[in-house]
């Protein structure tokens, strides 16, 4: 249909297919991002119009302020702990569940749907649902059973509140990752499996030596998505614990938000956001490069 020879024709098909998405992408992502980077070098106070230029360029002092904020460093450490736990647990659970629901389990479609549903609930609502569970349901359970673990709300003790965040993060993400693993599992050619069965491979041998190497791409995608999502956790953090008790469960993004809108240090917050962006970009790129190498070896 489209045979593009002249520049005009190429331009026309570009306009037809790419112009609107490109425009939307630039307006809502690229331009705000660039403006954000620019503002991190200024003393913008948060309410001046961006194009008024009533503010001054102050070089790197926002970045030095950002890095000398001890709570920011603490939230970064906490975020790393959270990311590690969520990435590992989510992928293990998602993979196991995927193996389970692709086997000859009765009602497996029901289970697939059930595991996927948490992903369809928005993070804020999800936070409130789990807030009820951790603070009201658990204490009621504690009253009934007398188990000390359930005596008080989990959201008011530092360690338990952190565990609660991990539980909710894992619960929300694993359904989606399960779908990706299912796609990987059912995409493996049936002949290979049959051949290995004839050669006498056990189920676990099949899983470890045939299935996993052949679906390594699913791992690349899933780990990338869980990394990104757990680094950027905000809505669940905000609605489940609000960073409490005493700001001990404040993740990096929530801290940046508080720094900007509660402490009204817009420059520092902007610089902290840029630093977080660089960290996430480096970690995610490294992960993708390593996984791609593994894929190359597996194939």
């Amino acid at each position: 249909m489209y045979i593009e020879k002249t520049f005009a024709q190429k331009f026309r098909s570009f306009l037809t297919f790419a112009a609107i998405p490109l425009f939307a992408f630039s307006v809502v992502l690229v331009i705000p991002f660039l403006v954000g980077v620019f503002l991190s070098f200024t003393d913008w106070n948060g309410i001046q119009a961006i194009d008024s230029f009533d503010y001054n360029v102050i070089g790197l002092s926002n970045f030095t302020a950002a890095l000398s904020d001890p709570t920011y460093i603490n939230t970064l450490v906490l975020t790393f702990a959270y990311v590690t736990l969520v990435v590992v647990i989510t992928n293990v659970i998602a993979f196991l569940v995927a193996v389970l629901v692709t086997s000859n389990l009765p009602a497996r479609n029901f289970f697939r749907a059930a595991f996927f549903i948490p992903n369809l609930i928005g993070g804020v609502i999800l936070g409130f649902i789990w807030q009820f569970i951790f603070s009201t349901f658990i204490t009621r359970l504690g009253d009934l059973t007398g188990i000390p673990l359930f005596q008080y709300s989990w959201l008011v003790e530092t360690d338990k509140a952190f565990i609660a965040l991990v539980i909710v993060g894992v619960w929300q993400l694993s359904g989606y990752m399960m779908l990706i693993y299912i796609a990987g599992l059912v995409g493996i050619p049936q002949e290979v499996i049959e051949a290995s069965t004839i050669d006498g491979a056990t189920t676990s041998q099949q899983l470890l030596h045939i299935k996993i190497p052949l679906m390594i791409q699913a791992f690349t995608i899933s780990i990338f998505l869980t990394l990104r999502n757990s680094f950027m956790v905000f809505d669940v953090n905000l609605s489940l614990t609000r960073g409490g008790p005493f700001r001990s469960t404040e993740m990096a993004t929530l801290h940046i938000y508080n720094e900007a809108f509660i402490s009204q240090h817009f420059g520092t917050a902007q610089a902290q956001a840029i630093i977080l962006f660089v960290i996430v970009a480096v970690v995610a790129t490294t992960q993708v490069i390593i996984s791609k190498r593994l894929e190359g070896r597996a194939l």
């Binding site: 008011v156 409490g244 008790p245 005493f246 700001r247 508080n258 509660i262 402490s263 009204q264």
Partner: peptide, 19 residues
């Protein structure tokens, strides 16, 4: 100042819980 009660509130919560 902005952020003041949040900071002091966190410290008060630590005191109230015996931290």
């Amino acid at each position: 100042p902005a952020g003041g009660w949040q900071a002091m509130g966190a410290s008060m919560q630590k005191y109230v819980t015996g931290q």
